[in-house]
Simulated assay, not measured.
Amino acid sequence: MSIKNFRYDKVGLNRFFGPLEAKIMDILWNGNEKSIKEVQQLIEKERSINFNTVMTVMNRLVEKKILEKRVERRTSLYKPIKTKTEFIDEQSKKLTENLLDEFGEMIVNHMLDSLEDVNPNLLDKLEQKLEQLKKGNK
């Protein structure tokens, strides 16, 4: 699954999804599989929304291979194909690879510059990974 539009000026799931898609994914990542009606009712606690709108967005997320759908007793149930952590890991890896492919050394320099304020544990992990790469062990 590949997200085509990364929105660097947004925050959280809104970097990958439109606002309604992000809300739906948040709901589904925080619970069991749900029907369109259940998702609509949870969204309606915050704002009014049409059932058909929720259905359209959820079915588009199925087409994008982000959700899977199964039918039980004539009710469609939806759940994410990947966990939230798996999804964000996959998307951030693709984004990093794309930036490195396109901008190479410039991106590495910017990443290194941004390490000044990073958690020391992350620096330790980076150092370990660099040592592994130098030894040829990915």
Results as ranks from 00 to 15, higher is better:
N5A: 09
F51P: 02
K82I: 06
N32M: 06
L99G: 03
M25A: 06
S92W: 05
E90P: 05
R15T: 05
I24V: 14
D117H: 11
N109D: 14
K84H: 10
P19A: 02
N30A: 05
K82P: 07
Y78R: 02
N52I: 00
M55R: 08
N50V: 09
I24Y: 07
K69I: 02
I81E: 13
K45P: 00
D113W: 07
M25L: 13
N98C: 07
V54L: 07
L28F: 12
I107K: 00
M25G: 01
M111D: 10
G104E: 10
L99A: 10
Q41T: 04
K10E: 13
I66C: 05
L100C: 07
R70F: 05
M55S: 13
Q91D: 05
S35R: 00
Y78F: 15
V11D: 15
E21Q: 14
K79P: 00
D26F: 04
S2A: 08
K125Y: 11
K93L: 12
E131N: 14
L115F: 09
E63H: 07
L95C: 03
S76H: 09
S48E: 15
S76Y: 11
V57Y: 14
E105D: 15
F6G: 01
I36H: 00
M1K: 04
F6A: 02
Q128C: 01
E105Y: 13
S35W: 04
L130S: 09
L67I: 02
D124W: 12
E116T: 06
V54E: 08
I3W: 06
G136P: 04
R74I: 00
T53E: 15
E68R: 14
K69A: 04
E116A: 03
I27V: 06
T83D: 12
M106H: 08
L13I: 10
V62A: 01
T56H: 14
F6Y: 15
R47D: 05
I88P: 12
Y78A: 00
M111H: 10
M1T: 04
V57N: 10
I27P: 10
E38G: 02
V39C: 01
M1Q: 10
